[in-house]
């Protein structure tokens, strides 16, 4: 990608507020942020602060009660083709093979899958180390492998923006770390704007270019921390002198929210 593209705003959140009922409590109040193209942004915050709600508004699955969400300068009113989502649970279809699960979005959207697209899916699976299980069914895979399939599925349509809603939360710590690095590999090969919601502070710091800390309800951005740790990130990053300081900084902001609750 060209250098100038990196400067372009990919997602623009302008003073958005949301509540689920007309007279209900605000879940999000006056939240603003800008995410640049091909930036990897992690969003952390106390439980129930509306992180998932925020993600769904960017995805166009939900409209904010107030304010505006813009993607590439256009107001988001409906789901866009250039946005892919990875959910907390892998949400694979148990009656389809891994390969069919990966191509499912195409089949679902257009009613058919071309041979080229199917081959593309195989390539992506191979890159994710899943080529051996393409013809297996989801229940035959471990949780980590299932989630990888979920990520590959989101990648197939080659979206410019990848929204990830606590994608690794159901996995054990080791798997989680490894799959995180795998994600970074994929991201570096095919640069994308990533919005990554997580509960894990160290995960956020380890993966992201920027960590956005949200406040408790009604939530907004309390801190926006740039993570200037060198890339590519690896096991060594954990030993980097700044790593501990950065996680501590994020943690302080979150605990401030929890105790203020």
């Amino acid at each position: 990608m060209e250098k100038q593209a990196l400067q372009q705003a990919s997602i623009e959140l302008a003073a958005i507020s949301h509540r689920f009922e007309p007279a209900g409590d605000w879940v999000i109040k006056g939240l603003s942020s800008t995410i640049s193209q091909h930036e990897f942004v992690a969003v952390v915050g106390p439980s129930g602060c509306g992180k998932s709600t925020l993600l769904r508004m960017i995805a166009g699955l939900l409209s904010p009660a107030d304010g505006a969400v813009e993607v590439y300068g256009h107001a988001v009113t409906a789901p866009r083709d250039d946005v892919g989502i990875v959910f907390q649970k892998p949400t694979l279809l148990p009656w389809l093979t891994v390969l069919d699960n990966v191509t499912f979005p195409l089949k679902h959207k257009y009613g058919r899958v071309s041979k080229a697209e199917s081959e593309q899916a195989s390539v992506l699976l191979k890159r994710a180390g899943l080529d051996g299980v393409a013809q297996r069914y989801p229940h035959q895979l471990s949780g980590g492998m299932q989630q990888r399939v979920g990520i590959v599925r989101a990648m197939l349509l080659n979206p410019d923006i990848l929204l990830m809603d606590e994608p690794f939360s159901a996995l054990d710590a080791l798997t989680r770390e490894r799959i995180g690095f795998d994600l970074l590999d994929l991201w570096q090969q095919q640069p994308k704007t990533v919005v990554f919601i997580t509960h894990s502070i160290s995960e956020a710091v380890l993966l992201a270019d920027r960590v956005v800390v949200m406040s408790a309800r009604p939530s907004s951005v309390v801190e926006d921390i740039v993570i200037d740790l060198p890339r590519p990130r690896s096991q060594q990053t954990l030993q980097h002198p700044d790593f501990a300081a950065l996680t501590a900084r994020v943690r302080t902001h979150i605990y401030a929210q929890v105790s203020a609750d």
Binding site: R56, A59, G60, L61, A78, P79, D81, V83, I85, F87, T91, P105, H108, K109
Partner: peptide, 8 residues
């Protein structure tokens, strides 16, 4: 949501 995000 996946289905809706795909606008199928």
């Amino acid at each position: 949501e996946l289905s809706r995000s795909l606008q199928a």
